[in-house]
Simulated assay, not measured.
Amino acid sequence: MKIGIVSDSHGSTRAIDRMLSHPAAEGVTLWLHAGDITPDAEYLAMVTEGKAKVRYVAGNSDWPEPGARYDDVVEAVGHRIF
């Protein structure tokens, strides 16, 4: 399993698209988005649907975001990531 970590995209879907076009993003099956801005993580989930799972939490620029998670524990390949 290859895990990608991203944060602080601040509303730029163009930045998400550029990130995904980078060779290092090839083969990522789990993306962890650490906030700022949660709709960016939803966009990431939409454009990677069927290729990768996306888990995300809200960041400091997302506060207060109704229904947003501010922490999460992800279990992947026998490891727990907080």
Rank of each mutant, 00 (worst) to 15 (best):
K2Q: 14
K2W: 12
K2P: 14
I3S: 04
I3W: 05
G4L: 13
I5H: 12
I5A: 12
I5K: 09
V6A: 15
V6T: 15
S7A: 14
D8C: 10
S9G: 09
S9D: 06
S9T: 15
H10T: 09
G11N: 13
G11Y: 11
G11I: 11
G11Q: 11
S12C: 14
R14K: 14
I16G: 11
I16F: 10
I16P: 09
R18G: 08
M19V: 13
M19Y: 13
M19Q: 07
L20Q: 07
S21H: 11
S21Y: 06
H22Y: 08
P23R: 10
P23Y: 11
P23M: 10
A25F: 04
A25K: 02
E26L: 03
E26A: 12
E26C: 03
E26T: 02
G27K: 04
G27V: 05
V28A: 07
T29L: 03
L30E: 01
L30A: 01
W31R: 01
H33S: 03
A34E: 00
A34N: 02
G35N: 01
G35I: 01
G35E: 02
D36N: 05
D36C: 02
D36P: 02
I37A: 03
I37C: 02
P39F: 00
P39M: 00
E42R: 00
E42A: 02
M46Q: 08
V47G: 04
T48E: 05
E49H: 04
E49Q: 05
G50L: 03
G50C: 05
G50Q: 03
K51D: 09
A52V: 06
A52P: 07
K53F: 07
K53P: 03
K53G: 13
V54T: 13
V54P: 12
R55G: 11
R55H: 14
Y56E: 08
Y56F: 15
Y56W: 15
V57Y: 09
A58T: 05
G59T: 11
S61N: 15
S61P: 07
S61C: 15
D62K: 03
W63M: 15
P64I: 13
P64Y: 14
P64H: 11
E65T: 10
E65L: 14
P66C: 12
P66S: 14
P66E: 15
P66L: 13
G67D: 11
G67V: 03
A68T: 04
A68N: 03
R69H: 10
D71W: 13
D71R: 09
D71V: 06
D72N: 02
D72H: 04
D72A: 05
V73C: 13
V73N: 07
E75H: 05
E75T: 04
E75F: 06
V77Y: 09
V77S: 10
G78D: 06
H79V: 07
R80I: 04
R80G: 06
F82P: 05
F82L: 09
F82Y: 12
F82A: 10
F82I: 06
